[in-house]
Design a protein around this nucleic acid. Structure first.
Lengths: 210, 210
DNA sequence: GTCTATAGAGGGATAGAC
DNA sequence: GTCTATCCCTCTATAGAC
């Protein structure tokens, strides 16, 4: 992997983070990378292809780096706390922002769809694996498929990230609501076996598992 | 309100819907409106100002038109079902898409922030008012502030809308997870008074209301 | 592999005729 | 209020020197 390639990949992330999908052009990316603009096309063929590659690499690297923290989470509440920490840390590093911007761009640019989906899938799989672990024995696990739940969590995360730009206080309180919901499911887990079984039966009646 | 002004407002929404924030230029908006490009600047001064006005107007009109349906909702489950219907209907009309695109643009364009926040606030207030009504007596209401919950719901909606573009099946299953969560809170409501009070006490202990 | 230069399209915004 | 014409900018992408 040549130096310039890596500089461009990093520059693409920096440009997406600092200027958004509307401002991530070959020129701004090259400027962020400190290389010549024509090299975008020499190494990647097009701006979209570069963004796609950068998006993939950044997501893989980020998910990898957070994996130990995810593994050490022992409760749903901790998972939400980790989510908030991730959100706070990424506000400066900006990787969730990048994903949100690429996702917004993908809505009307087919060439970005694959990149957005693959990057998001990496996060979703990681979240799903941990939900599976944390929801073991919880009545909720009997109705909510962890894969679906993980997708909802990831999508909510993206939504809150965008909302953060329009109303930081509102985004904080949205997070607080999620934390409260997670507390609810934890309490379900703390219920005595009798109450838990009663609730489980009720859930099953309400929503038979497919 | 002159005809041309309205044509431009409608054209802006159409352009945002069909081409996204990256493709909503004075020229594409004017083309969608069927008027001359210079009129964008005569009537609104700048493209951003037009988008801002269009965003405000569209959100107000949409919230207004859905208000009777919101009022007729009698359960949390119905609210989620209405959300899905709204999502499906708006996929063609595209007003959630528009909001998501403006929100994504606002992240790096200060001139769009106010428009995004105001449009979103209209939806949030409507959702909050209905949650307040539907959660009355539910133990969840003792811990989760309806305003915060409404913000989380709105943000999740935006996130799922964007996710839909990258993975339609995934977005559907994310919605299914939200439906399952809503079923959970309904069951809480159906619990006998003893169990409900026990749960309520537990929730309060876990998260004292501010 | 890296650079300069440039083609060719599209963008925001304005001047000035009508 | 509406139109044409235009300025000047940025964009993607390529050609060709080094």
């Amino acid at each position: 992997m040549s130096d310039t390639r890596q500089l461009l990949l990093d520059g693409a992330i920096a440009a997406l983070r600092d200027k958004g999908i509307t401002g991530a052009s070959a020129r701004t990316i090259a400027a962020a990378a400190g290389v010549n603009q024509a090299l975008v096309f020499y190494h990647f063929g097009s701006v979209d292809a570069l963004i796609q590659a950068a998006c993939r690499e950044a997501a893989a690297q980020q998910v990898e780096s957070y994996r130990p923290l995810f593994r050490s989470v022992a409760s749903l509440h901790d998972l939400v706390v980790l989510g908030q920490r991730l959100h706070a840390e990424q506000r400066s590093a900006g990787n969730v922002t990048v994903l949100a911007q690429v996702l917004a761009g993908a809505r009307h640019n087919p060439r970005l769809v694959a990149a957005a989906r693959e990057a998001l899938t990496l996060w979703i799989d990681e979240i799903a694996a941990n939900l599976e672990r944390l929801l073991e024995g919880n009545p909720l696990a009997q109705v909510a498929d962890t894969g679906c739940l993980a997708r909802a969590v990831a999508a909510s995360f993206i939504g809150i990230e965008l909302y953060e730009g329009a109303d930081p206080d509102g985004a904080r309180s949205a997070f607080a609501a999620l934390e409260q919901l997670s507390a609810l499911t934890e309490i379900l887990d703390d219920l005595g076996p009798v109450a838990r079984n009663a609730l489980g039966a009720r859930l099953r009646r309400h929503h038979p598992r497919p």
